[in-house]
């Protein structure tokens, strides 16, 4: 696998128990250190290529998640971290959980686990990097819109 660019990552906590969030942060700190793949954690959606979401989706954070996603430049990859982000997990039956991240966004990569282990999260991020390359290549292959036609 060829990793060509350094992707920046944005992390948002949907409605998780915090377990996956601290594991995401653990990935970014020594011992696991995803920065060696060039991944940097950013707080600004307009800087981000990979959107890491932990926890399930509820009525209130659905719009926050959608808004962050829309602000991110294309191409972008969504990674759902932890079983709650995948399908609601143990909180699936709670009245204030509508389900996993895929109820509001197209999810590219699912990282299961409760809490997701750092190794699994890193695996997900590395897969996201590869997918990002693919998406970028695909976008480049498509003929660019003619500026004259676009007006």
């Amino acid at each position: 696998m060829n990793v060509s660019k350094s992707p920046w990552l944005l992390h948002y906590d949907g409605s998780s128990c915090n377990g996956c969030d601290i594991e995401v942060l653990a990935c970014l700190t020594p011992v696991y250190d995803v920065e060696r793949f060039g991944v940097i954690n950013t707080g600004n959606p307009k800087h981000a290529d990979i959107f890491l979401i932990t926890g399930g989706i509820n009525h209130q954070n659905a719009q926050v998640v959608r808004q962050i996603y829309n602000q991110m430049p294309k191409p972008k990859v969504v990674v759902a971290v932890g079983i709650c982000a995948c399908n609601g997990g143990i909180f699936k039956e709670c009245y204030n959980i509508q389900g996993g991240v895929d109820t509001v966004l197209p999810v590219d990569i699912y990282v299961p686990g409760c809490a997701a282990r750092p190794e699994a999260i890193m695996d997900g991020v590395v897969k996201a990097v590869a997918l990002l390359d693919q998406k970028r290549k695909k976008a480049a292959e498509q003929p660019a819109p003619d500026p004259k036609e676009a007006g």
Partner: peptide, 26 residues
């Protein structure tokens, strides 16, 4: 991040609820 896990006692028995209680916060 309100999930409403206090109401899960109606769906999980008191032994199972230990797992929910652990997941109040990681």
């Amino acid at each position: 991040v309100h999930r409403g896990l206090e109401k899960l006692v109606e769906k999980k028995d008191f032994h199972e609820y230990v797992y929910v209680a652990e997941r109040i916060c990681g």
